[in-house]
């Protein structure tokens, strides 16, 4: 789901910025669009965005680093988000995430060595009445179990 290109063309960055500058408060929409296009927010985009929006680079960096969603490096080919919040804990959510992480041999926010799967914590997907909940590549999963969540790992290149 992600593009591995480390440095997107300057024209591609400019095009994304240009498409959003008419908005009131365009920074978050721009960052979302960057991540959608490249799989992460490239470091080379920071000065370009700053110049276009008349902000300092520190301000742009500050916004990127404030929000959990924005990545500064590409994720694995699949992203698994597992809910850590209370409703999921009430039905074995903690055991589920432990099982998934130990099966894949990684910690929160890490990617398997073959680049297949990144596992991230999420605090509530609004699926609290069919917990534990997870999201795999943007697709929601209720009453999730470790086998279904780790099935992706052996898939190789997606």
């Amino acid at each position: 789901m992600t593009t591995q290109a480390a440095e997107p063309a300057p024209e591609a960055l400019a095009e994304i910025i240009e498409a959003h500058t008419h908005l009131e408060g365009p920074l978050l929409p721009i960052l979302h669009a960057m991540q959608e296009a490249f799989g992460f927010v490239p470091g080379t985009a920071v000065p370009v965005i700053a110049k276009a929006l008349k902000l300092t680079r520190a301000e742009v960096h500050g916004v990127i680093s404030f929000y959990h969603d924005f990545r500064e490096a590409p994720a694995g080919r699949h992203t698994v988000k597992i809910c850590r919040a209370e409703a999921c804990q009430a039905v074995g959510g903690a055991a589920l995430s432990e099982a998934v992480l130990s099966k894949l041999g990684i910690g929160w926010g890490e990617t398997t060595p073959d680049g297949a799967v990144t596992v991230e914590p999420v605090y509530c997907l609004g699926l609290c009445a069919c917990a534990p909940a997870a999201m795999v590549d943007g697709k929601v999963m209720g009453r999730a179990d470790a086998d279904r969540l780790t099935a992706l790992a052996g898939e190789g290149a997606a």
Partner: peptide, 10 residues
Amino acid sequence: EGDSGTFADR
């Protein structure tokens, strides 16, 4: 709607 256990907004 970030509160765990809530999903009415959604």
